[in-house]
Design a binder for these strands. Structure first.
Ligand SMILES: [Zn+2]
Ligand SMILES: [Zn+2]
Ligand SMILES: [Zn+2]
Ligand SMILES: [Zn+2]
Lengths: 130, 130
DNA sequence: AAAAATATCGCAACAATGTTGCGATTTAAT
DNA sequence: ATTAAATCGCAACATTGTTGCGATATTTTT
Protein backbone atom coordinates (compact mmCIF):
# COMPACT_ATOMS: atom_id res chain seq x y z
CA UNK A 1 0.00 0.00 0.00
CA UNK A 2 1.23 3.45 -0.94
CA UNK A 3 1.91 6.00 1.73
CA UNK A 4 -0.14 9.12 1.21
CA UNK A 5 1.44 12.54 1.59
CA UNK A 6 0.19 15.81 2.93
CA UNK A 7 0.12 18.39 0.23
CA UNK A 8 -1.22 21.91 -0.02
CA UNK A 9 -4.12 20.80 -2.14
CA UNK A 10 -5.07 17.93 0.15
CA UNK A 11 -5.01 20.20 3.18
CA UNK A 12 -7.16 22.73 1.38
CA UNK A 13 -9.72 20.07 0.47
CA UNK A 14 -9.83 18.87 4.07
CA UNK A 15 -10.44 22.42 5.26
CA UNK A 16 -13.37 22.71 2.89
CA UNK A 17 -14.87 19.57 4.40
CA UNK A 18 -14.20 20.85 7.88
CA UNK A 19 -16.11 24.03 7.21
CA UNK A 20 -19.10 22.28 5.68
CA UNK A 21 -22.12 21.01 7.54
CA UNK A 22 -23.36 19.03 4.53
CA UNK A 23 -21.92 16.62 1.98
CA UNK A 24 -20.13 18.13 -1.01
CA UNK A 25 -19.91 17.28 -4.67
CA UNK A 26 -16.71 17.46 -6.65
CA UNK A 27 -17.93 20.63 -8.32
CA UNK A 28 -18.81 22.31 -5.03
CA UNK A 29 -15.37 21.53 -3.68
CA UNK A 30 -13.76 22.88 -6.81
CA UNK A 31 -15.63 26.17 -6.51
CA UNK A 32 -14.59 26.64 -2.91
CA UNK A 33 -10.97 25.90 -3.72
CA UNK A 34 -10.90 28.83 -6.07
CA UNK A 35 -8.33 27.47 -8.49
CA UNK A 36 -5.84 26.25 -5.92
CA UNK A 37 -5.38 23.10 -7.95
CA UNK A 38 -6.53 21.26 -11.04
CA UNK A 39 -9.90 19.51 -11.41
CA UNK A 40 -8.19 16.15 -11.84
CA UNK A 41 -6.17 16.65 -8.69
CA UNK A 42 -9.37 17.01 -6.69
CA UNK A 43 -10.62 13.69 -8.02
CA UNK A 44 -7.36 12.07 -7.03
CA UNK A 45 -7.39 13.61 -3.58
CA UNK A 46 -10.96 12.44 -3.01
CA UNK A 47 -9.94 8.94 -3.95
CA UNK A 48 -7.05 8.96 -1.53
CA UNK A 49 -9.18 10.36 1.28
CA UNK A 50 -11.68 7.58 0.72
CA UNK A 51 -8.99 4.92 0.81
CA UNK A 52 -7.75 6.37 4.06
CA UNK A 53 -11.28 6.33 5.50
CA UNK A 54 -11.27 10.06 6.04
CA UNK A 55 -14.25 10.74 3.82
CA UNK A 56 -17.02 8.57 2.38
CA UNK A 57 -19.00 8.67 -0.82
CA UNK A 58 -22.75 9.16 -1.04
CA UNK A 59 -24.66 8.35 -4.19
CA UNK A 60 -28.08 9.84 -4.64
CA UNK A 61 -31.11 8.60 -6.56
CA UNK A 62 -30.84 11.41 -9.09
CA UNK A 63 -27.34 10.23 -9.93
CA UNK A 64 -25.43 12.95 -8.10
CA UNK A 65 -22.42 11.89 -6.07
CA UNK A 66 -21.24 13.67 -2.95
CA UNK A 67 -18.64 13.19 -0.27
CA UNK A 68 -18.66 13.75 3.48
CA UNK A 69 -16.17 13.57 6.32
CA UNK A 70 -16.23 10.47 8.46
CA UNK A 71 -16.55 11.39 12.09
CA UNK A 72 -15.76 7.95 13.37
CA UNK A 73 -12.40 7.57 11.75
CA UNK A 74 -10.58 5.29 14.08
CA UNK A 75 -12.62 2.20 14.47
CA UNK A 76 -11.12 -1.18 13.84
CA UNK A 77 -13.74 -2.06 11.28
CA UNK A 78 -14.65 1.03 9.34
CA UNK A 79 -18.15 0.73 7.88
CA UNK A 80 -20.54 3.41 6.79
CA UNK A 81 -23.84 2.00 7.75
CA UNK A 82 -25.59 5.25 8.56
CA UNK A 83 -28.27 6.81 6.43
CA UNK A 84 -28.13 9.99 4.36
CA UNK A 85 -30.81 12.48 3.64
CA UNK A 86 -31.16 14.24 0.33
CA UNK A 87 -33.50 17.23 0.16
CA UNK A 88 -35.36 17.46 -3.11
CA UNK A 89 -35.79 21.20 -2.62
CA UNK A 90 -32.43 22.61 -1.51
CA UNK A 91 -30.45 19.58 -2.75
CA UNK A 92 -28.42 19.42 0.40
CA UNK A 93 -27.24 16.01 1.48
CA UNK A 94 -26.55 15.39 5.14
CA UNK A 95 -25.31 12.42 7.14
CA UNK A 96 -27.85 11.01 9.57
CA UNK A 97 -25.25 9.41 11.81
CA UNK A 98 -27.86 7.97 14.13
CA UNK A 99 -30.15 6.46 11.54
CA UNK A 100 -29.11 2.90 10.77
CA UNK A 101 -31.39 0.56 8.87
CA UNK A 102 -32.11 -2.91 10.09
CA UNK A 103 -32.95 -5.57 7.57
CA UNK A 104 -32.94 -9.28 6.96
CA UNK A 105 -30.99 -10.63 4.01
CA UNK A 106 -31.56 -13.90 2.18
CA UNK A 107 -28.77 -16.44 2.59
CA UNK A 108 -25.86 -16.65 0.23
CA UNK A 109 -25.25 -12.97 -0.12
CA UNK A 110 -22.13 -11.41 1.33
CA UNK A 111 -22.88 -7.79 2.16
CA UNK A 112 -19.85 -5.55 2.40
CA UNK A 113 -21.27 -2.07 2.05
CA UNK A 114 -24.63 -0.40 2.20
CA UNK A 115 -25.97 2.78 0.67
CA UNK A 116 -29.10 4.01 2.37
CA UNK A 117 -30.27 7.38 1.13
CA UNK A 118 -33.63 8.87 1.98
CA UNK A 119 -35.02 11.77 0.03
CA UNK A 120 -37.79 14.27 0.58
CA UNK A 121 -37.82 17.55 2.47
CA UNK A 122 -35.26 18.55 5.07
CA UNK A 123 -36.34 20.37 8.27
CA UNK A 124 -35.40 23.74 6.80
CA UNK A 125 -37.40 23.34 3.64
CA UNK A 126 -40.28 21.69 5.44
CA UNK A 127 -40.68 24.73 7.67
CA UNK A 128 -40.49 27.07 4.71
CA UNK A 129 -43.76 25.45 3.65
CA UNK A 130 -42.85 24.60 0.11
CA UNK B 1 -50.77 14.93 -17.71
CA UNK B 2 -49.79 13.75 -21.21
CA UNK B 3 -51.10 10.49 -22.51
CA UNK B 4 -48.28 8.15 -23.40
CA UNK B 5 -48.38 6.18 -26.63
CA UNK B 6 -47.29 2.70 -27.52
CA UNK B 7 -44.54 2.84 -30.08
CA UNK B 8 -42.26 0.27 -31.62
CA UNK B 9 -39.31 1.51 -29.64
CA UNK B 10 -41.19 1.49 -26.35
CA UNK B 11 -42.42 -2.04 -26.93
CA UNK B 12 -38.90 -3.16 -27.76
CA UNK B 13 -37.53 -1.64 -24.56
CA UNK B 14 -40.21 -3.35 -22.53
CA UNK B 15 -39.35 -6.68 -24.12
CA UNK B 16 -35.73 -6.21 -23.12
CA UNK B 17 -36.82 -5.67 -19.52
CA UNK B 18 -39.11 -8.69 -19.71
CA UNK B 19 -36.25 -10.91 -20.79
CA UNK B 20 -33.87 -9.68 -18.11
CA UNK B 21 -33.55 -11.13 -14.64
CA UNK B 22 -31.45 -8.19 -13.44
CA UNK B 23 -31.58 -4.40 -13.61
CA UNK B 24 -30.27 -2.78 -16.77
CA UNK B 25 -28.31 0.36 -17.53
CA UNK B 26 -29.10 2.64 -20.43
CA UNK B 27 -26.08 1.30 -22.27
CA UNK B 28 -27.03 -2.32 -21.74
CA UNK B 29 -30.50 -1.63 -23.10
CA UNK B 30 -29.05 0.17 -26.08
CA UNK B 31 -26.83 -2.79 -26.92
CA UNK B 32 -29.73 -5.21 -26.80
CA UNK B 33 -31.89 -2.99 -28.99
CA UNK B 34 -29.35 -3.28 -31.75
CA UNK B 35 -29.94 0.10 -33.36
CA UNK B 36 -33.72 -0.05 -33.37
CA UNK B 37 -33.82 3.55 -32.21
CA UNK B 38 -31.68 6.48 -31.17
CA UNK B 39 -29.81 6.77 -27.88
CA UNK B 40 -31.86 9.81 -26.91
CA UNK B 41 -35.10 7.99 -27.59
CA UNK B 42 -34.14 5.34 -25.04
CA UNK B 43 -33.61 8.02 -22.41
CA UNK B 44 -37.00 9.47 -23.17
CA UNK B 45 -38.70 6.08 -23.08
CA UNK B 46 -37.10 5.30 -19.73
CA UNK B 47 -38.39 8.57 -18.36
CA UNK B 48 -41.91 7.83 -19.54
CA UNK B 49 -41.83 4.31 -18.15
CA UNK B 50 -40.76 5.69 -14.79
CA UNK B 51 -43.55 8.25 -14.76
CA UNK B 52 -46.00 5.48 -15.52
CA UNK B 53 -44.57 3.39 -12.66
CA UNK B 54 -43.64 0.58 -14.98
CA UNK B 55 -39.95 0.68 -14.17
CA UNK B 56 -37.92 2.17 -11.35
CA UNK B 57 -34.47 3.65 -11.12
CA UNK B 58 -31.65 2.27 -9.01
CA UNK B 59 -28.58 4.29 -8.16
CA UNK B 60 -25.48 2.47 -7.07
CA UNK B 61 -22.64 3.53 -4.80
CA UNK B 62 -20.20 3.62 -7.68
CA UNK B 63 -22.41 6.14 -9.44
CA UNK B 64 -23.90 3.77 -12.00
CA UNK B 65 -27.62 4.02 -12.67
CA UNK B 66 -29.82 1.11 -13.65
CA UNK B 67 -33.48 0.44 -14.23
CA UNK B 68 -35.72 -2.49 -13.37
CA UNK B 69 -39.31 -3.50 -13.99
CA UNK B 70 -41.76 -2.97 -11.19
CA UNK B 71 -43.56 -6.16 -10.41
CA UNK B 72 -46.11 -4.54 -8.19
CA UNK B 73 -47.43 -2.07 -10.68
CA UNK B 74 -51.00 -1.63 -9.62
CA UNK B 75 -50.95 -0.55 -6.05
CA UNK B 76 -52.74 2.56 -4.98
CA UNK B 77 -49.64 4.10 -3.52
CA UNK B 78 -46.67 3.14 -5.60
CA UNK B 79 -43.48 3.23 -3.56
CA UNK B 80 -40.22 1.41 -4.13
CA UNK B 81 -39.12 0.62 -0.66
CA UNK B 82 -37.38 -2.64 -1.40
CA UNK B 83 -33.64 -3.10 -1.35
CA UNK B 84 -31.29 -3.76 -4.24
CA UNK B 85 -28.15 -5.80 -4.36
CA UNK B 86 -25.14 -4.82 -6.38
CA UNK B 87 -22.44 -7.44 -6.91
CA UNK B 88 -18.96 -5.98 -6.89
CA UNK B 89 -17.72 -8.90 -8.95
CA UNK B 90 -20.20 -9.45 -11.78
CA UNK B 91 -21.73 -5.96 -11.45
CA UNK B 92 -25.24 -7.33 -11.67
CA UNK B 93 -27.91 -5.44 -9.81
CA UNK B 94 -31.00 -7.28 -8.68
CA UNK B 95 -34.15 -6.30 -6.84
CA UNK B 96 -34.55 -7.86 -3.42
CA UNK B 97 -38.31 -7.48 -3.33
CA UNK B 98 -38.57 -8.96 0.11
CA UNK B 99 -35.87 -6.97 1.81
CA UNK B 100 -37.26 -3.77 3.27
CA UNK B 101 -35.28 -1.72 5.74
CA UNK B 102 -36.79 -0.52 8.97
CA UNK B 103 -35.44 2.63 10.52
CA UNK B 104 -36.29 5.49 12.83
CA UNK B 105 -36.10 9.03 11.49
CA UNK B 106 -35.57 12.21 13.51
CA UNK B 107 -38.56 14.54 13.53
CA UNK B 108 -39.00 17.29 10.98
CA UNK B 109 -37.96 15.32 7.96
CA UNK B 110 -40.49 14.39 5.32
CA UNK B 111 -39.35 11.20 3.62
CA UNK B 112 -40.78 10.60 0.18
CA UNK B 113 -38.43 8.06 -1.34
CA UNK B 114 -35.74 5.70 -0.21
CA UNK B 115 -32.78 4.22 -1.98
CA UNK B 116 -31.35 1.19 -0.22
CA UNK B 117 -28.61 -0.58 -2.09
CA UNK B 118 -26.42 -3.25 -0.59
CA UNK B 119 -23.21 -4.27 -2.25
CA UNK B 120 -20.86 -7.20 -1.93
CA UNK B 121 -20.96 -10.65 -3.49
CA UNK B 122 -24.04 -12.21 -5.03
CA UNK B 123 -24.79 -15.94 -4.52
CA UNK B 124 -23.31 -16.82 -7.89
CA UNK B 125 -20.03 -15.08 -7.31
CA UNK B 126 -19.85 -16.19 -3.69
CA UNK B 127 -20.00 -19.82 -4.76
CA UNK B 128 -17.38 -19.28 -7.41
CA UNK B 129 -15.03 -18.61 -4.50
CA UNK B 130 -13.59 -15.33 -5.62
C1' DA C 1 -61.60 8.44 -44.57
C1' DA C 2 -59.34 12.78 -44.26
C1' DA C 3 -57.79 16.44 -41.34
C1' DA C 4 -56.09 18.23 -37.16
C1' DA C 5 -53.81 17.82 -32.79
C1' DT C 6 -50.13 16.14 -30.24
C1' DA C 7 -46.85 12.67 -28.71
C1' DT C 8 -42.70 10.71 -30.22
C1' DC C 9 -38.50 10.44 -32.91
C1' DG C 10 -33.81 11.40 -34.99
C1' DC C 11 -30.17 14.23 -35.35
C1' DA C 12 -26.93 17.47 -34.03
C1' DA C 13 -25.02 19.96 -30.63
C1' DC C 14 -23.95 20.65 -26.04
C1' DA C 15 -22.90 20.00 -20.91
C1' DA C 16 -21.40 17.58 -16.97
C1' DT C 17 -18.68 14.22 -14.94
C1' DG C 18 -15.09 11.14 -14.63
C1' DT C 19 -10.61 8.79 -16.52
C1' DT C 20 -5.86 8.13 -18.41
C1' DG C 21 -1.01 9.01 -19.78
C1' DC C 22 3.00 11.36 -19.09
C1' DG C 23 6.53 14.58 -18.08
C1' DA C 24 7.34 18.01 -14.35
C1' DT C 25 7.19 19.06 -9.50
C1' DT C 26 6.93 18.29 -4.63
C1' DT C 27 7.38 15.61 -0.51
C1' DA C 28 9.49 12.61 2.83
C1' DA C 29 13.02 9.56 3.99
C1' DT C 30 18.04 8.53 4.05
C1' DA D 1 21.99 17.12 -0.16
C1' DT D 2 20.50 13.07 -2.50
C1' DT D 3 17.17 9.96 -3.86
C1' DA D 4 12.87 7.46 -4.43
C1' DA D 5 8.24 7.79 -4.66
C1' DA D 6 3.96 10.25 -4.43
C1' DT D 7 1.57 13.98 -6.34
C1' DC D 8 0.49 17.47 -9.76
C1' DG D 9 -0.93 19.90 -14.16
C1' DC D 10 -2.20 19.56 -18.60
C1' DA D 11 -4.18 17.74 -22.55
C1' DA D 12 -6.87 14.46 -24.43
C1' DC D 13 -10.44 11.33 -24.18
C1' DA D 14 -14.75 8.53 -22.64
C1' DT D 15 -19.19 8.17 -20.82
C1' DT D 16 -23.54 9.76 -19.56
C1' DG D 17 -27.23 12.69 -19.82
C1' DT D 18 -29.75 17.01 -21.81
C1' DT D 19 -31.91 20.32 -25.14
C1' DG D 20 -33.92 22.31 -29.40
C1' DC D 21 -36.14 21.61 -33.46
C1' DG D 22 -37.96 19.99 -37.69
C1' DA D 23 -39.72 15.48 -39.28
C1' DT D 24 -42.58 11.45 -38.39
C1' DA D 25 -46.02 8.57 -36.26
C1' DT D 26 -50.07 7.98 -33.55
C1' DT D 27 -54.47 9.27 -31.81
C1' DT D 28 -58.55 11.99 -31.89
C1' DT D 29 -61.84 14.76 -34.17
C1' DT D 30 -64.55 16.02 -37.98
ZN1 LIG E 1 -33.90 21.36 1.98
ZN1 LIG F 1 -22.39 9.99 5.96
ZN1 LIG G 1 -21.96 -11.47 -8.82
ZN1 LIG H 1 -36.20 -2.94 -7.54
Amino acid sequence: MKKTRNTTAKTAVLEVFEKSRTALSHTEIQKQLNGICDRVTIYRILERLMNDDIIHKISNLDGTVKYAKCNHSHQRVHIHNHAHFSCENCHEITCLENVKPSYIMPHNYKVKEINFTLSGLCPNCLNSNI
